[in-house]
Structure formats: C-alpha cells, structure tokens
C-alpha cells in the first residue's frame, strides 16, 4: 500500500504508472486478459457455427440464400453505425488526452447514442423474425443467428452501461485524477473496439454468406 501511495493515490497499485514487469498499467493488462477470454468465448461459438454449417446438407436449412432470410440493408446500416461508434469512442479518449472534458462528454454521448441505435435496429430485425414465427428453435440457422447476435447484443448493453458510468458519475474522477480517468476511458474503448471487431466477422458470416 505504501508503495502504491508513493506512485499515486489509488488504492490499487499501478493504475496510472506502468507496472515495472509488464510495462503497462494494471487496468490495461487486465482488460487485455479479459479480451483474450472473450476471443475464446466467441471463438467457441464461431467454431460451433462452422461445424453446424459444414455438416448441413444445405445452408440455410430451409433453402434459398442467407441474404434472402435476413435484412442485408439493415445489417449493413448497423455495421456502419457500429464502425462510427468506434471512432467516436476513440475521439472521446483522444479528447481526454488533449485535456478537454466537454469534448470527451460529447463524443462519449455520441458513442452511447450510436450503440443505442444499433440495439433499436436489432430490435426491429428480431421483431420481424418473431412475427414470422422464426424463433431460435425454428432451425439451426436461427439457433446460431440468435445465439451469436444475442450474445453480441449483450456485449453492446454492457458497453452502454460502462460508457454511461464514465459519462456521468465516473467522470468526477477527471477533477481528482485525470490520468487515471483517461486510462479508464482507454480500457472501455479497448472493450468497445473488440465488440466492433466481433461484429465485423458476424456480419458477413450471418448476413452475406
């Protein structure tokens, strides 16, 4: 504790200064380890998708093409929305690095807004499928479609919660420890870009191929 206090005021050591062993702050190392576990989570589901798809006599099982049973324009729009939210996230962190809290708040609010737009579009996509009676139990395509996009959607909700905290109550840290706060924004950004990265693979896999 005494050593931590010597570096900064945080009760957890090396949240601002790089750890002497890893060369990066502990929070950043932690988020990367978490993302590594996330790669395996989505990797296992992608692997399941490959297994189900290659084992099927026809894909999608009910016939036709994947692009005929999902809404490609809405999926494309959602991809653009998520990519845009990634750059607004980078700009919110960059605003912290450049010492501007108001700009951080502007870009972070934009990120949360875009994430919400993504979920609203997804809601309409899901609703259309449910209206047609296409639930996860309909066939293997819908099972893997809802599992992968549903898990991804949960990650979007998680990102919205963390980002909303940073935008509101969490931003009080800016006045007491701006460097620590900037690191928190960077870590939230790493998570958010990962969520974007997963969608970059989900979109062609589930909508176009």
């Amino acid at each position: 504790m005494a050593e931590a206090a010597a570096h900064h005021e945080s009760p957890i050591p090396y949240m601002v200064q790089p750890h002497p062993v890893t060369g990066i702050p502990n929070g950043k190392f932690g988020i990367w380890l978490f993302l590594a576990s996330e790669v395996m989570l989505f990797g296992a589901l992608f692997s399941s998708y490959v297994l189900i798809r290659t084992g099927a006599p026809h894909w999608p099982p009910e016939g036709g093409l994947t692009s005929e049973i999902v809404n490609v324009p809405l999926g494309t729009l959602n991809t653009a929305v998520l990519i845009t939210s990634s750059i607004t996230m980078v700009l919110s962190w960059a605003s912290c690095k450049m010492g501007s809290l108001p700009r951080f708040k502007l870009w972070m609010a934009a990120t949360i807004g875009l994430a919400s737009v993504f979920l609203v579009i997804k809601y309409f996509e899901y609703k259309h499928k449910f209206d047609l009676g296409h639930f996860p139990s309909h066939d293997n395509f819908y099972a893997i479609y809802f599992t992968l996009t549903g898990l991804h959607g949960l990650h979007i909700i998680g990102g919205i919660i963390v980002n909303t905290f940073l935008l509101t109550a969490g931003s009080k840290m800016w006045t007491t420890d701006p460097e620590h706060f900037t690191n928190r924004v960077e870590n939230a950004g790493l998570y958010w870009h990962f969520v974007d990265l997963v969608w970059i693979f989900l979109f062609p896999s589930l909508y176009l191929l």
Partner: peptide, 17 residues
C-alpha cells in the same frame, strides 16, 4: 468476405486498439 473482414479487424486492432 473473410479476407476483407480480416483486413477490417486488423485496422481496428492496429489503430483503434
């Protein structure tokens, strides 16, 4: 599609992350 997705993922990881 997978090559393009990999390039996009690479850009996000390399620059944004």
């Amino acid at each position: 599609a997978l090559v393009i997705a990999s390039v996009k993922a690479g850009l996000v990881a390399a620059v944004f992350m």
